[in-house]
Amino acid sequence: MLEDNKHLLLFSLKQELFGISVKNVTRVINLEKIIKIPKAPTFVVGAINLEGHVIPVVDLANKIDLGITEVNEDKKVIVLEILREEEETMEVGVIIDEVLDVVALENNALAAPPLDNMGFNANCLDGMYKTGEDFYMVISASKIFESELETLVQ
């Protein structure tokens, strides 16, 4: 058995292929009943009610400078749980186009990511995963929200 954190959730967003460690993923839901939050940072599309918790939904594409996602009911939301400080976690949903697969990650299967001309903010990458002909950009949940987490600690 491979450990949880050795699995990747593969998804597509804006024609690009991505992967994220399932360690941070609590679930994937349909984008429904989202409310707008005026005055929120531009990358926050709104908030949803997830079993009594109010969770902000982030336009992932916007957050990593990949463009703006059109919010509609076809979209999916990956709910992430990101560790901040000790023991405390922050829940946040990110919008994606489609979930593709969950794969086990063999040792050293992550290649170093190319950093130039990616068309989005490559600082949030953990590495690259190749299977068959496809390359998946593996993004790190905590790196996506690095600057937000930093200001929270202060």
Binding site: V44, A47, V54, E91, F145
Partner: peptide, 19 residues
């Protein structure tokens, strides 16, 4: 009353959210 998520704490025109 539900507190606002950490990402939204800077928005002070809302004190929280509710279902």
């Amino acid at each position: 009353y539900k507190p606002l998520n950490e990402l939204l704490q800077d928005i002070d025109c809302f004190s929280g959210a509710s279902i």
